[in-house]
Write a protein that binds this DNA or RNA. Structure first.
Lengths: 227, 227
DNA sequence: TATTATTTTTAGGTAAGACTAAATTATTTT
DNA sequence: AAAATAATTTAGTCTTACCTAAAAATAATA
């Protein structure tokens, strides 16, 4: 298992995402993300677990996690992806809702030389245009204490760190609302019935939006100490 | 045959190169270029000829040429490749002997949006770093009356237009000699025994090199009218 | 025309995925 | 605890997209 196919790289990338919280990734979740049948996932997982060296740790019915080897491979792909997104937006004028697709294709083919050259041109960025952290050259993920906006309650204040979605329509919507990384907000309302949050954008005088859980759970923020 | 595999794209690219002179491309030549057995080429050629629409015109034992459809596909790949080479050298500091490999991988995955964005950033270049013409957006190849340096005899003068090789070692060698696109030269010697040419570099006072046929036949020039 | 070189055919192989259907195992609910 | 539901795995197939070696056919050349 010397060179990993694009497909395998994608599996690893998604397993990484599903296990970031510390748990294991289930067959079904992986299948849903990858758009294939659960049985296909089991098959691939078995291949990954039996590879030398093993890329995942797998016990039947318990889900998978990445081995150190698998994690390294996943981080390599993720670094490629996020550097590419940053490059495309910064240097080629891509909009943040269209970069994902292009980066998904390029991430599997660029060389280490390409990676290091765009990293240098960009000044070794630590976050991509969506605010996602970019693993450094040693593949260490910059840590931050982000929590989902959906966890906040009035009158908490926060700084938007990242937007965890690739849905182009949603990204355009968020951009319109001004809910992008770097924006300072205050939660001014919460409805326990539908979990809607009312968000006030600190910088703008009269800007206020009501957003549902499916949106607020995808926006990650850092709490601002309340004076 | 809606989306063409990388492999097919490579076949088309090489068929294009082998038929630029007007002739047909032979199975053996193609096999040699692609690094596969002749039988494999025959098989693939038949697939390409039977595709809808057909990508090549093929009669047994007569070699292949591209159909208009196949040519269009080939030019698309070639445009990608040459724009990428130009971009990598100009914007990311690649050296002209290392770009080829990177471009070969990227050429198959970039979108039309990517293509048009780098073309714009570069100011719609007509030639790549090796002097090879870049098809324009309409996939028309810029014409020029280049002829191989090996065809010149003393005391003809010429301008180097392009260097038709991807061999990194040879490219480095040529760069050292100063035999790069844009250089003005004069042929000051010819040996009919070994076909060696003695080349004087016009701009430099005392620079003179003796080069063999295997090199001079890969350098393409435009004749300069002799005053 | 005989020989050589090239090309094509034949027959078969591999690797990477994906799929369905049936069987098994876990988890809930009654 | 038994039954029902949900999730997972097995087993067996299929497709695609190549590749190859050896034999046969064709074309080119001495």
């Amino acid at each position: 298992m010397d060179i990993l196919s694009r497909n395998i790289q994608d599996y690893l990338k998604h397993i990484y995402a599903l296990t970031e919280d510390g748990g294991a990734a289930s067959t079904t979740d992986l299948a849903a993300r990858l758009g294939v049948a659960p049985a296909s996932v089991t098959g691939m997982i078995q291949r990954l677990a039996n590879a030398a060296p093993p890329l995942v740790e797998y016990r039947k019915h318990q889900g998978v996690r990445l081995t150190p080897h698998g994690e390294k491979a996943a981080l390599e792909v993720i670094r490629h992806h996020r550097l590419l997104e940053t490059y495309l937006v910064t240097m080629l004028g891509y909009s943040w809702d269209t970069v994902h697709e292009e980066a998904c294709r390029l991430e599997h083919v660029i060389s280490e030389e390409f990676e290091s050259k765009i990293a240098a041109v960009l000044g070794h960025p630590t976050h991509d245009p969506h605010g996602e952290p970019i693993p450094n050259e040693a593949l260490e993920m910059p840590a931050d204490q982000a929590l989902p906006l959906s966890a906040l309650r009035p009158p908490q204040k926060a700084l938007i760190l990242r937007v965890r979605t690739e849905n182009p329509a949603l990204l355009r919507h968020l951009e319109q609302l001004g809910l992008v990384p770097g924006t300072k907000i205050q939660v001014v309302g919460y409805s326990s019935f539908d979990q809607n949050l009312t968000i006030h954008i600190t910088q703008a005088r009269n800007l206020q939006h009501v957003i549902g859980f499916s949106i607020s759970s995808q926006i990650y923020v850092a709490l601002q100490s309340f004076p």
